[in-house]
Computed example of a mutant assay.
Amino acid sequence: MPHRRHFLASTAAAAGRLALGGAALWGARQALALPAYTVPLEQLQEMVGAKFPRSVPVQGLLDLTLQAPRLRLLPAVNRLGAAMAVDAAGPALRRSHSGSFDVEFALRYEASDRTLRAHHITLGRLEFPTLKPAVTELLNTYAPVLAEQSLAEVTLHQLRPQDTAVFDGLGLQPGPTTVTARGLSVAFVPKPS
């Protein structure tokens, strides 16, 4: 009889651990399976393209005209990249010069207008094949500030009320944004109490 009680007690304990483990596993799965809204690259490209060309003055000497970027997804670093064509013209130059540069940036969600915006911009080197190297160097000195002025907070996507209505009804709000191979994935997280 003592063996039977010991067997029943150990079985009940094991069942309890299994139930607790199952509940923890279910909770972990729920945390991993937050609902998400995906924005494909084509849709991002269309929205950002509508915001260009942009003109950026450089110290009254010349103007840089930024053309629409060609976006690319960088899921390994959770960022977006963009190759951009740029034209330089103005009083300091005899003619217009075409060049290019590359940027990478992270995204942030702005709750006030439900937008995904570029931030934490990293600028690659400006390249102008027809400009004198000294002028190109001067432009590269100003380039990070110019990129921040002209590209920071560029809206890449705006969530419409109908995009989030179901989530709003469930007490969820947009949370972390992740760059995936399919586009941007906006996770929905519980609203603070």
Rank of each mutant, 00 (worst) to 15 (best):
G60Y: 10
R4Y: 13
R108G: 14
R182M: 08
G27D: 10
G27Y: 12
G99S: 08
M84A: 00
T122N: 07
P91S: 14
P53E: 05
Q43C: 01
T130H: 10
Q43F: 04
G183Q: 05
D87Q: 11
A50R: 05
A83G: 09
R94Y: 13
G183V: 11
P129W: 10
H120C: 02
G16R: 04
R95I: 13
L131W: 01
L126Y: 10
P161F: 09
R95N: 11
R17V: 14
P192L: 14
A181H: 06
L184E: 09
D87P: 00
E137P: 03
S193G: 15
A23C: 11
Y37Q: 04
V135M: 12
G22E: 13
D168L: 13
Q30D: 04
A76C: 08
S10M: 13
L25G: 05
L93W: 05
R108A: 14
R182L: 15
R114C: 03
G175V: 07
T136V: 15
G175N: 03
L8M: 13
T38E: 11
A89Q: 08
G171W: 01
E148Y: 05
H6G: 00
T177E: 07
Q149V: 12
K51D: 06
G60A: 11
R4E: 14
R117C: 12
V145G: 04
A106Y: 11
G22V: 15
L61S: 06
V186D: 00
T65H: 02
R114Y: 10
A152P: 00
F52P: 00
L25I: 12
V189C: 03
G16V: 14
F101M: 12
L146E: 01
Y142A: 05
E153M: 02
K191H: 07
H97T: 08
N140K: 06
L18C: 11
T155H: 01
E110T: 04
P190V: 14
G49A: 10
E153C: 00
P91I: 13
A111W: 03
A76K: 11
G16M: 13
V39M: 00
T177M: 12
S150H: 05
I121V: 15
Y37P: 01
H157G: 02
L25M: 11
R108C: 08
F7S: 11
T164L: 14
A187M: 09
S100L: 03
L146P: 00
S112D: 09
L8A: 14
S55W: 02
P174R: 03
P144W: 12
A9L: 15
E46W: 09
V86E: 00
Q43P: 01
L61Q: 10
P40I: 04
F105C: 10
Y37R: 02
N140G: 10
